[in-house]
């Protein structure tokens, strides 16, 4: 049965509540870098399904990639057996996709992960900048039962809408 949009309670600690459809995809992955590619493929497919253009889909997939990389590297300290849960669903009020990520890793406040000044050209330090820049909404909070929750949302740009019609 297709469910209509509904207001979901904001996860504990998240300040903004969104109205969005029931998540259509629920995934659990292990904290392994080689699983980033299949998750990206799923994200691109879901983004295309809701009408995001190719570049917007790529940017959303990249933001998710960077979030997962932080969880794997900093949250789970590269332990390959950590659990990560990912939900994806269309936004209700605009053409776009919402992704929720949960883990049980050591809490790492993304605000405390120092990104570098973009004028300072050196390897590394770009992940946080990319995550914040690539999506329309980026939020994170500690989960009451441990771990972190991250929300990413990306809506269609006008070009996306025209391309999708």
């Amino acid at each position: 049965m297709v469910q209509g949009p509904r207001a979901r309670p904001a996860p504990s600690g998240l300040t903004v509540q969104s109205v969005f459809h029931e998540p259509e995809v629920h995934m659990q992955i292990l904290s392994r870098p080689e699983l980033l590619a299949p998750v990206r493929a799923m994200t691109n497919a879901m983004a295309a399904r809701v009408g995001l253009n190719d570049i917007d889909a790529c940017h959303l997939a990249l933001a998710l990639d960077e979030a997962l990389t932080n969880i794997i590297r900093h949250g789970y300290d590269s332990d390959r057996n950590g659990r990560i849960w990912i939900e994806m669903g269309p936004l209700a009020l605009t053409q776009g996709l919402r992704i929720e990520i949960k883990d049980r890793a050591r809490s790492v406040n993304p605000d405390e992960l120092q990104g570098r000044d973009l004028e300072d050209i050196r390897p590394g330090g770009l992940g946080m900048h990319l995550m914040r820049t690539l999506v329309d909404r980026f939020e994170h909070a500690n989960r009451p039962d441990g771990g972190m929750q991250i929300v990413l949302e990306k809506s269609s740009t006008p070009a996306s809408v025209s391309n999708a019609s």
Binding site: D65, I121, P123, L126, L130
Partner: peptide, 16 residues
């Protein structure tokens, strides 16, 4: 077709 921040870091390292 795709590159994340680790790929960008690789290219910056190559440039240096």
């Amino acid at each position: 077709p795709y590159m994340d921040s680790s790929g960008l870091a690789t290219m910056v390292e190559a440039l240096q």
